[in-house]
Simulated assay, not measured.
Amino acid sequence: MEFLILAIDDCEDHCLLMASFLESFGYQCVSALDGSTALQLAQRHQPNLILLDICMPKMDGDEVLRCLKQNPQTAAIPVVAVTAMAIGTRKRFLAAGYDDYLMKPFTSEVLEAILQRHLVVSPAT
């Protein structure tokens, strides 16, 4: 099964880095540089997982998450908070409704471990 990941970050270099890691793991990736584009892509592509930067202008990650969870078409998609905020804790992000938390800067190994935790292939029946 091929998985599609939506990577959202207002820094184009961060999106390119995430896409490079994801593609090296064998995943497909679509990217968005802002929250409104991300919401459109999430609805259109129905990704298997979303990597969502928290600090973005206009629409921050928490607002994007609320919109995703309010939309029945995107509510079940796992969302991983991606942030460089030192004050952010895994507990805070889980309480806010994120499925996991990834601290910047991160290694490809840490990213891959998070992906493997959330992208589970169902056994054939």
Results as ranks from 00 to 15, higher is better:
A76Y: 11
I8S: 06
L17R: 13
E23M: 10
D9P: 06
C67M: 03
A124P: 06
V80Y: 04
I5F: 03
Q70D: 09
D53I: 05
C29A: 07
L94C: 08
Q73G: 00
T37Q: 04
Q40P: 00
M18L: 14
D9M: 06
S108D: 06
D10V: 15
L16P: 09
L6A: 01
L49Y: 01
F3D: 03
H45Y: 09
A84E: 05
P57I: 07
R66M: 11
G61V: 10
T74L: 01
G35W: 02
H14G: 12
Q116E: 04
V110P: 00
L33F: 07
A113V: 00
Q43C: 04
V82H: 07
K58Y: 08
Y98C: 06
D62L: 15
L52V: 08
G61M: 12
G97A: 14
S122D: 11
Q116K: 12
T74P: 01
R66D: 11
E63N: 11
Q70W: 00
R90A: 15
A124N: 10
C11V: 14
D10A: 12
S108Y: 02
L22C: 09
F93T: 05
H118T: 03
V64Y: 03
Q73Y: 01
A113T: 05
L16D: 13
F3H: 10
H14F: 11
T89I: 15
L52G: 04
S36W: 09
T125W: 07
K58A: 08
A96V: 07
D99C: 15
L68M: 03
P47D: 03
I87F: 13
G88R: 11
R66F: 07
R90H: 10
M103S: 13
E109F: 09
Q73S: 05
Q43A: 02
V121H: 04
D62Y: 14
L52M: 13
D100F: 05
P78G: 05
Q116F: 01
G61L: 09
M18E: 14
M56L: 13
T125K: 12
S36D: 10
S24P: 10
A38M: 04
M59N: 08
L4R: 12
V110Q: 04
L4I: 06
A76R: 06
D100Q: 01
P47R: 03
L41D: 00
R66N: 13
I54S: 10
K58P: 08
F21A: 05
A95P: 06
D60Y: 06
E112S: 12
S122I: 13
L6T: 03
S24F: 07
C55R: 14
E12L: 13
Q46A: 09
M1W: 10
M85L: 15
A84G: 15
Q43V: 01
I50F: 01
A81C: 13
N48G: 07
A95Y: 07
N48P: 01
T37P: 02
L65E: 05
G26R: 14
L39H: 02
Y27R: 14
N48L: 02
R44P: 00
L17P: 04
G61Y: 05
S24Y: 12
V64P: 01
F3W: 11
Y98T: 11
I77C: 04
I114S: 07
P105L: 09
K58M: 13
R117M: 02
Q73A: 11
F3Y: 13
M85C: 12
K69C: 02
D13G: 08
F21W: 08
G88Q: 12
M56C: 11
L39W: 00
K104I: 08
M85K: 13
T125Y: 11
T83W: 15
S31G: 05
Q40G: 06
